[in-house]
């Protein structure tokens, strides 16, 4: 079923422009589904079980906040959700596709076509303008340079950074950098936006701006948002709050959104 994902046989253009349509064929009930997902780091005595069997379903359109103490496995789960990592056992279905059996390149194609990732430390390219940072994912999709430019400007406008296109990350504040990172994650119009502690380095006012932005993307563009946060104030923006504890889901409740 993953024939189209066989990147080795594809040309640059094909792999960049044609979404792996095979992925859409199995009709998924949910956008993401964890079935008994475990993750073990290391081997033998030094091994560390970061996830101990997680079951989780997230439907398209949800705004999920993942909370939990440090070391409870939140980032580990996010990395698996973002196809950067694979479960040690159990299965992770993204749009009905078993991610665990995909190759590195096939997972890269899933990220490229369906996911946007906002990293905790912004992770922008230094010495590169905000606009070029945002253009980057489009570059790997093989978009033309005029198309890239237009869509990157639009994404920067969405996050409220019109006029800052030519500034490099070093010339931007933390909140602005985080917004550039969000713009980069949404520029490809992904189905899901994964954000690991998107407000971790920001003060309350900046954090609220980011949360308003995520809420807007979720409501107006229907992007599924999965976000890790330590702060209850930020989790309050979500429609659903999942709490992790020692590599297990401790609680999973709907949340009435704070009106903003």
């Amino acid at each position: 079923m993953n024939a189209e994902l066989k990147t080795g046989a594809q040309t640059q253009e094909e792999s960049a422009n044609v979404p792996p349509t095979a992925l859409a064929t199995p009709q998924p009930e949910n956008l993401v589904a964890f079935r008994g997902v475990t993750k073990v780091y290391g081997r033998g005595d030094a091994s560390m079980q970061a996830l101990r069997g997680i079951d989780l379903d997230i439907a398209a359109g949800e705004f999920v906040a993942i909370m939990g103490p440090s070391g409870s496995g939140k980032s580990t789960a996010m990395n698996i959700l973002g196809c950067l990592d694979t479960p040690t056992s159990g299965s992770y279905l993204f749009k009905g596709v078993e991610v665990g059996v995909l190759s590195r390149n096939q997972r890269a194609l899933l990220r490229r076509h369906y996911q946007g990732f906002v990293f905790q430390g912004y992770n922008l390219l230094n010495r590169t303008s905000a606009l070029e940072n945002v253009e980057l994912p489009l570059l790997y999709r093989g978009a033309s340079s005029s198309d890239r430019r237009a869509r990157a400007r639009e994404a920067l406008e969405t996050v409220g950074l019109t006029g800052w296109e030519t500034h490099s990350p070093g010339e931007l504040s933390g909140g602005q950098q985080q917004r550039v990172a969000i713009a980069r994650a949404i520029v490809t119009s992904p189905e899901v936006l994964l954000a690991d502690e998107p407000t971790g380095n920001l003060d309350t006012a900046r954090s609220r701006e980011i949360m308003d932005l995520l809420t807007k993307l979720n409501r107006e563009r229907g992007i599924t948002v999965i976000m890790v946060t330590h702060e209850p104030d930020m989790a309050a923006f979500a429609t659903r709050i999942i709490r992790f504890m020692d590599g297990l889901v401790a609680s999973d409740q709907p949340n009435r959104r704070e009106s903003s």
Partner: peptide
Amino acid sequence: IGIRLAIGALERE
């Protein structure tokens, strides 16, 4: 390189 790979660059790219 990590950023490029994470946003969907293929190994060969």
